[in-house]
C-alpha cells in the first residue's frame, strides 16, 4: 500500500511577489497492484504530484509512504515525451534503467509483448512516436518498480495507435500487476484503463471524486459501454465538464 499525503505545495507566483498554492491537503491511498487514473484539467498540478512521488521534487510539506519499502522505493516513470537517450539503442536505453544488468530474459520478454523485438538494436531517432512510447513503457516495467508513474503517455498519438499501445499496456500490466498511477485528461482513456479513477480540481489541486470503474476488464474494448459510463459520470459530476 502507498500513502500519499501532501499538506501543501507552493509555487513562486509568475510576474509578482509571493507564492501560490498548487496542492493543498491531498490524500491518496493506493492498494498494491492497483491501476489508478488521475483525471483533471491541464495545469492542475498532476505532473507536479508525480514529480513529488518520484522524488524529483522535494520542495513540499507532507509525505509519500511506501509501506513495505520505507527508504528507497523503486519508481518507474513514463514521461509525457518518451525521454529516451538518442545515442543509445532501444535495448541499451532499457538496460541503463535497470540497476543489475542480469535481467536480459526479462527485457526479451517485455520487448516481445510490446512487439519491439526486431527494433531492439535500433537508435530512437529511427522509431515512430508510438514505438518510442512503447520503449518508454518497457523501461518503466523493466525496473520491476514498486510504483509505475505514467504522465499522459499517449498524448499526441493518433487514435488507432493510442488504442493499440493502450491494449499492449494492459496486456503487460496483467502479466506484471505493478501499482500504476496514470495521469490523463481524457475521460474515455481513464475508463478504458483504470481500476479506479480519481478526479481532481485545480488551484489548488484537490480530489473531487474517487470511484471504481464498474465495467469488467473483458468489456473494456466496448466503446459503447465506455461512452455510457462517461455520460453518467458527466451527469453526476457537472464539475468534470
Amino acid at each position: 500500500m502507498i500513502a500519499i499525503d501532501i499538506k501543501s505545495k507552493m509555487y513562486p507566483a509568475k510576474g509578482r511577489a509571493g507564492h501560490h498554492l498548487a496542492i493543498a491537503e491531498l490524500q491518496l491511498l493506493l492498494q498494491s497492484g492497483e491501476f489508478v487514473c488521475l483525471v483533471g484539467p491541464s495545469g492542475c498540478g498532476k505532473t507536479t504530484l508525480l514529480n513529488i512521488i518520484a522524488d524529483l521534487d522535494r520542495d513540499y510539506e507532507g509525505s509519500v509512504n511506501f509501506k513495505q519499502h520505507q527508504t528507497h522505493p523503486k519508481i518507474g516513470y513514463v514521461f509525457q515525451n518518451p525521454r529516451l537517450l538518442p545515442w543509445r539503442t532501444v535495448r541499451e536505453n532499457i538496460e541503463l534503467a535497470i540497476e543489475d544488468n542480469s535481467s536480459s530474459e526479462n527485457i526479451d520478454a517485455l520487448l516481445e509483448v510490446m512487439q519491439l523485438t526486431q527494433f531492439q538494436h535500433v537508435y530512437p531517432e529511427r522509431l515512430s512516436l508510438g514505438m518510442s512510447r512503447r520503449v518508454a513503457i518497457i523501461r518503466g516495467f523493466a525496473t520491476n518498480p514498486d510504483m509505475l508513474l505514467m504522465d499522459e503517455p499517449f498524448v499526441s498519438l493518433d487514435a488507432p495507435t493510442a488504442r493499440q499501445v493502450r491494449s499492449l499496456l494492459i496486456t503487460l500490466w496483467q502479466q506484471r500487476p505493478h501499482t500504476v498511477l496514470f495521469v490523463t485528461h481524457d475521460l474515455r482513456e481513464a475508463i478504458a484503463l483504470a481500476d479506479r479513477i480519481v478526479f481532481l480540481a485545480a488551484a489548488p489541486m484537490k480530489v473531487i471524486a474517487d470511484m471504481a470503474v464498474p465495467i469488467p476488464r473483458s468489456e473494456r474494448d466496448d466503446e459503447q459501454a465506455i461512452e455510457t459510463f462517461r455520460q453518467q459520470l458527466l451527469h453526476d459530476y457537472p464539475a468534470l465538464k
Binding site: A54, D55, L56, H72, K74, I75, G76, Y77, F79, N81, R83, L85, L96, A97, E99, R139, T143
Partner: peptide, 12 residues
C-alpha cells in the same frame, strides 16, 4: 533537463 530528470528518477 528532461534527460537529467529521467536519469534521476531511474537512479542512474
Amino acid at each position: 533537463q528532461d534527460l537529467l530528470e529521467m536519469a534521476r528518477s531511474y537512479r542512474f
